[in-house]
Design a protein around this nucleic acid. Structure first.
Lengths: 347, 347
DNA sequence: GCCACTTCCGGTAACGTTCCCAATAGATGC
DNA sequence: GCATCTATTGGGAACGTTACCGGAAGTGGC
C-alpha cells in the first residue's frame, strides 16, 4: 500500500478507461454525468490526488510560482510575500519562496532553481544591476521595488516615492516644519537618489531652497539612524530639530539617540519615518511615518504575472500610492508659532 | 526557439545517446571523462537546464518541501521560515510556503496542495487538534510549536517552555521580584496551560505559593496586553508592580498602558516579555524578554525531515532552549530594597 | 587464440498525466 | 435502410527524465 493511487487505479475502480477518468476529473464536457459521478466516487474512495508533477510535465503548467526577495525575515518583504502568496493561492497555484540576502550569487542560484522547477512565473526584487541576467531568464517575471527601474521594458511594481515624499512634506509643512533635516540611505543605493530627487522637486514647488536642508547619510539600519541623529544634534545643539528619515529603522534609531541625548521627542525633536514597519507602532512615542503598501505590492506583482501569462495587456511599470500614518513623533509647530508671534489666540 | 532544450538536444549536440548524456550530467561513474566533458560543454552551449518536474516524476523525488505556518507576516514565523528555507536550500531543494491564518480549512487546503505537488516532506504548525488529519497525510512531516504535543508519535520541534519560564523566574527573583503578576493567553490555548503549569512548578521549587500570583488573561495581542495591564494597575494602584507576560506583543501593550497611566517603566512597573520579537528592541525602555530560538526551530524541523527521509534515527520530540535578553524594562529591586532596609550602602 | 572481465555506451521502458484520433452506439434525417 | 451526426468512450502517444539490460569494444590471463 505504499504507492499513491494514480488515475489508472481510479479508472480501474470505476470500470472506465484512464482517458475517461481523466476527462471526468478535469470537468471536461465530453463525459456523461453518470460516468463522471462514478469516477468521482472512485477517486474519493481510493484517496486519489492528482500528481501535479505529471500534470506539469504533460501540460507545461507546473502550478508553481517563484518569489525571490532579499529576506523573508524583513517585515516589509514578509508582507510582500504574503500578498503574492494570497494571489497565487487564489489561482490554485503554489509559491516557492527564496531569500537572496542581497547577494548576487544567491540570487542567481535561486533563479536557476526556479527555472529548474519549471515555475510558470516569478516575482523578483533584483539585487543585480545586470539586465542581461533577466533578459535570458526564460520565464515570465515581474519585478518589484525600486531597483526594478533599471529594467524599463518588463512589468514592474513599486511604491510611488514621489507621492510619498509629497505626502510627507505636505504634512511637515502643515505642522510647521518647512525645512526638515534628512537622514538618507547610502550613496550607492538607487533608492537614495530617488528619494532625494523627490524632496528637491517638492521643495522647489514650495519655493524652498533645497540646499538649506541638512543631510546625513545612514545605511538603512537602526544603528545608522542612531549615529546620523547624533551628528545632526551635534550640529544643532538647541532649538527644535525636525528629521525626515528615509526608512523607519533609521527613524527608530534616531529616536533612541534623541532620548539618550536627554532631549525629548516630539517636544525637542520631530521625527518622520518612511516604510510603515509594525515596530513603529510600539515605540514611544509612536512613529509618524509614511506606509508603503507592502502587501498590495506583492498582490499586484503576482496579478501582473497572471495577466501576462493569460495574454492580458500589461501596464508596464506601476507605482502604488503610500499612506501617511500619524502617531506621535511629530510636534505641531503650526499652533505654537502663531501664538508666540501674535501673542494671542482663541481658546 | 520557444522550446527549452531537453537532454535529447544536449545528447544530439554532443553526439551521444540521451542515456549517456543523462549519465554524464548526473555524475555517474559509468561514463568516460572525455565524453562527460563533451556533454557538459553541449549542455552549457545549449542552455540546458534539468527539468525537475520530469526528474521528480521518474525518480519520485520532487525536490520540493512544504511549510505551513500561521502567518509569514508574523516575525516569529518569518524567522522559522527562514531557518527552514536555509536548510532546505542547502540540500538542493526548494520550499513551498503557505500561511494558514489559524484556519482549519485553509490548513487542509494547503496540505492538499502540498500532497499534489508531491513534496518530499512538510513542516507544519498544526492549527488542527485532529490527529487523524496527519495520520493520513501520506508525506513525511515534522511538527513545530506547542500544539505539536498533541501528536506524540511524530517528530516535532518546540521551544523549551519550562526552561524558559525557569530562566525568567530566576531573573525576576535575582532582581528582587519574587511574585510577579502574570498576563497570559486565552484559556482555550494549550500554550497558556503549559506556561502556567511551568510557573507553578517553579514557584513550588522556590517555596512560593502560586496562588499569590495575580493572573490576567490576554489574547496574545497588543490590545489584550494593554487592557490586562490596566486591570492590573487598577487592582494595585501603588507600589512597584511586576508583570511577566506570556508574549512580547502583550508586554509591549502593557508598557503603553503603564505610560498612559502616568507611571513609568521600569521605575514603577517592571515588565518581562516572552518571544524575542524585534520590536522589543525598539521600544522605550527596551523590553527585557526571553527569546525563543525561532530560526533554529525552523532549521531543526527541516533537518529532522531530511533525517527521516534518509532513514536516519529520529529524536521524537525536541525542545530547544530559550535565551534571556536583558534590555531595560526590569527594575533592580535587589539593590534598592537592602538600601532602604539597612539604611546604608557602599558608594 | 580463447575466455572472463571491465569499461563504456545505446535502446527501451517506465513514471502519471493529458491530448489527439479513432471507434462505437444511438439518434436523426431523408 | 442508409448516410450523417452527436455523444461518449477507449487506445495510444507524448511530455523529459532515469533505470535497467544488453552489447560492443578493450584488457589481461592462461
Amino acid at each position: 500500500m505504499g504507492r499513491r493511487p494514480t488515475i489508472i487505479d481510479v479508472a480501474k475502480l470505476a470500470g472506465v478507461s484512464k482517458s475517461t477518468a481523466a476527462r471526468a476529473l478535469s470537468d471536461s464536457p465530453d463525459v456523461n454525468e453518470v460516468t463522471r459521478d462514478k469516477v468521482r466516487k472512485a477517486a474519493i474512495a481510493s484517496g486519489y490526488e492528482r500528481n501535479h508533477l505529471a500534470v506539469g510535465m504533460r501540460s507545461g503548467r507546473s502550478g508553481l510560482f517563484g518569489l525571490v526577495i532579499p529576506d523573508i525575515t524583513n517585515p516589509f518583504w514578509a508582507e510582500v510575500a504574503r500578498g503574492a502568496q494570497d494571489i497565487v493561492g487564489e489561482n490554485g497555484a503554489s509559491l516557492l519562496v527564496f531569500s537572496s540576502d542581497w547577494d548576487h550569487d544567491r540570487e542567481a542560484s535561486h533563479l536557476r532553481a526556479l527555472r529548474q522547477a519549471r515555475v510558470e512565473g516569478a516575482i523578483v526584487n533584483p539585487v543585480s544591476d545586470n539586465a542581461e541576467d533577466f533578459g535570458r531568464f526564460g520565464v515570465p517575471f515581474s519585478l518589484i521595488g525600486s531597483s526594478a527601474e533599471r529594467f524599463p521594458d518588463t512589468p514592474s511594481i513599486g511604491s510611488d516615492i514621489r507621492q510619498a515624499v509629497r505626502l510627507g512634506l505636505d504634512h511637515l509643512v502643515a505642522r510647521g516644519h518647512p525645512a526638515p533635516a534628512l537622514i538618507l540611505g547610502p550613496k550607492s543605493r538607487l533608492a537614495r537618489a530617488r528619494f532625494l530627487r523627490s524632496v528637491h522637486e517638492h521643495c522647489l514647488e514650495r519655493d524652498i531652497d533645497p540646499a538649506v536642508l541638512q543631510v546625513e547619510d545612514g545605511d538603512y539600519t537602526f544603528e545608522g539612524g542612531h549615529s546620523a541623529m547624533q551628528r545632526l544634534m551635534a550640529r544643532q545643539p538647541s532649538g527644535h530639530l525636525t528629521v525626515f528619515c528615509a526608512n523607519d529603522l533609521m527613524a527608530l534609531g534616531a529616536m533612541l539617540a534623541v532620548r539618550e541625548a536627554g532631549r525629548e521627542c516630539p517636544r525637542d525633536v520631530s521625527i518622520l519615518g518612511f516604510d510603515g514597519v509594525p515596530a513603529g507602532a510600539f515605540s514611544w512615542p509612536g512613529l509618524t511615518t509614511i506606509e508603503k503598501p507592502a502587501r498590495e505590492l506583492g498582490r499586484r506583482a503576482a496579478q501582473a504575472l497572471f495577466d501576462e501569462i493569460a495574454g492580458r495587456p500589461q501596464d508596464g511599470r506601476t507605482y502604488l500610492p503610500c499612506r501617511l500614518i500619524e502617531r506621535g513623533s511629530l510636534a505641531d509647530l503650526s499652533v505654537q508659532t502663531p501664538l508666540r508671534v501674535a501673542g494671542a489666540g482663541r481658546s
